[in-house]
Design a protein around this nucleic acid. Sequence first.
DNA 1: GATGAATGAGGGTTCATTCAT
DNA 2: GATGAATGAACCCTCATTCAT
Lengths: 219, 219, 219, 219
Amino acid sequence: MESASLPTPRPGIRRGSPISVDRARRRREHILDAATEEIAAVGYQRATIRAIARRAGVADGTIYNYFSDKSDLLLGLLGRLTEAERRKIDLGQRPASGFRELLGAYLRHRLDTLRQRLELLRATWPELLIDPEHRRDYYEQVLRPATELGETLLADLAARGSVHTADPALAARVVTATILGLILQRLLGDEAVDERREELPEILTTILLDGLRPRTGGR
Amino acid sequence: MESASLPTPRPGIRRGSPISVDRARRRREHILDAATEEIAAVGYQRATIRAIARRAGVADGTIYNYFSDKSDLLLGLLGRLTEAERRKIDLGQRPASGFRELLGAYLRHRLDTLRQRLELLRATWPELLIDPEHRRDYYEQVLRPATELGETLLADLAARGSVHTADPALAARVVTATILGLILQRLLGDEAVDERREELPEILTTILLDGLRPRTGGR
Amino acid sequence: MESASLPTPRPGIRRGSPISVDRARRRREHILDAATEEIAAVGYQRATIRAIARRAGVADGTIYNYFSDKSDLLLGLLGRLTEAERRKIDLGQRPASGFRELLGAYLRHRLDTLRQRLELLRATWPELLIDPEHRRDYYEQVLRPATELGETLLADLAARGSVHTADPALAARVVTATILGLILQRLLGDEAVDERREELPEILTTILLDGLRPRTGGR
Amino acid sequence: MESASLPTPRPGIRRGSPISVDRARRRREHILDAATEEIAAVGYQRATIRAIARRAGVADGTIYNYFSDKSDLLLGLLGRLTEAERRKIDLGQRPASGFRELLGAYLRHRLDTLRQRLELLRATWPELLIDPEHRRDYYEQVLRPATELGETLLADLAARGSVHTADPALAARVVTATILGLILQRLLGDEAVDERREELPEILTTILLDGLRPRTGGR
DNA sequence: GATGAATGAGGGTTCATTCAT
DNA sequence: GATGAATGAACCCTCATTCAT
């Protein structure tokens, strides 16, 4: 039962020669790449070990040298997703001039990253929706931290008067939900979301900040 | 135990005895109920005909008297979803006093209905994400009409000065995306969305209309 | 477990009204017709009760009022075959002028009758080849009598000097085998056998009587 | 335990190790043997993959490593039959002293070979009679070439005065039909054909050459 | 007698997993 | 470590047969 995304092995720690360890790590990633593609294409259940092996250019049995069983492959994918999200969030915290710029940069970055992971999301969301175990993992490791970060942020900003919201907890959910929803629409076939990806963060920022109501006194 | 899209049989029109026709219709719905539960629980691929039959209290073979094959069961589920969405949209068009009230009522209704269909969504979305054929059907029959309705509405309101948006097409997508995203968060384990369902439409309306930015001149 | 081809009911013997008995007999024959067609088309195993019922224009269950089970339908077909063969052989014994004419008439009649039963043969032979029980029935009731009749005939003719053969038993088998073989060739797709059906008995008679060797002294 | 149509692998040409290739070939033949037995015993439709696998001493799934599906097993059987027939025909062309000897040798060889293939014939003929696709294959690959060879041969001999027949095409059909018919009689339960297999070719030759009619001038 | 919905055993086939090479 | 043939449990689906109407 190996777990996902191995940390880069630090020099000094080794098992076998460093070269072979490295080769093994790369082969593992290579298999995960193939699994991502195949599972994104046909879904976890329909993806066969054989098809993944063919895609990776290895024999069926070889996969079992790197993953304990098929569901461990899925764990590997989820690991990548978790790790990707974590990195995203870290990056979202970089400094920015004003609140509008900060929010805009955050939204753009988040949409961009999710879009890059589109295949990974298509491969994993279905299983997350269905399997309670994986769902809980994903919720605890990705969704909840992201939401809580947003909550804290909004509460802080509200305290400083930068934003105006009666309920930071729900407001944060609305923000993350909008992003998730846009990606979901994209996955469900709405190509406009993709075609106009450049303008989207700007418009999204405006709506979230200023709302849809016309301003009486300009701006 | 919902009864899906079949029109109520008019007296005078019949095929077979009305009683048996009615029994057949109810049995079909009963099987679809069981399929919804089972598929929502374990996913379409993992759901076996046997498990669905057991849940419905019928023999395996009986299912094939009502559905041509397993994928036809999924089509039945999608049909229910489509129909549910259509009804929602119709109701969304009823008259309301002001724009704020209209949007609030719409959002509340839409969130309520989707919440009632939570199991149906959990049963179908994963397959929709994966199967291109079903995805296209769903997009054409549900997602695209809903989005286009929103587009028209927003464009109309913008023309009348009720809302302010540079781009109704994307703005409509943001609104629908927010709703989808909230439901998806719910499905992925965020219980706050459910617990505070009463307040959500109000807050959502406020954010979408007024934005998060503090108003300088009161309000 | 009813058996095949009911004898025409004699007046005086009745069960229920004569009309209904007659209707029942006709319905039974009608079902057998449908079974012959369907089984000849797709084979006994592939022929479904439902398909036969549809072809006969009755409900599935109705067939079970006339036949105890599916294999009883096959028995009905075999019964028809047996009966047909028996009639053929009887007719083959009608008087004829010379031996050549007798043999010619016999061959023509037998080929004609078998050709009319082509569908019946296609429907039954496969099962006869496979099922030992049915095979034995068919052999005892059809093949053996026919062969033995030929044996007797040939032995008789040989005794009277009309034919010349060292071994009537095998010679009779050769004659019947030739007929069977021609029909089999026809069933296996050789259309020449069918197209030239008019000339075949004549040529067959000549070969069987005179052989293929050229005559030195004319004739 | 026959080894069918694969050419003996030449040294130097190999795919995989020669040993494993050879093992695979032998296993394939072994499965075909089991299939022949089982299908001859109960018929193609009634023969289950499981029964064939048990007979071959392998697991169900193993069969699918060698045959794409059940019907491919039947194709394998037909392949053996085709190949067997082809070999027969080649051997039938070897030189012989006189025409009588040639015909006698041909008939003996053909009867012998068919008799060795009795189980194969019992396994395949029923499906050939029923399935139009397989029937056409068999007719084109086996029956038609055999018949046409006979036609050519007879026409040639007739031209040279060795045989006397008005119509080589039909005469050839009569000869092949006689052989087929004898085998069919055997398959249908007539054991005399088998018991007297030694004398049969001689008697058959005599009948086909000289006919059944007594010769006036001796002989 | 006629109907056809319901039944459930059984069939062909797939595929995750193992293991001898 | 790598391979891929072998395994057999489990799936979807068919269809002969029953029986309430």
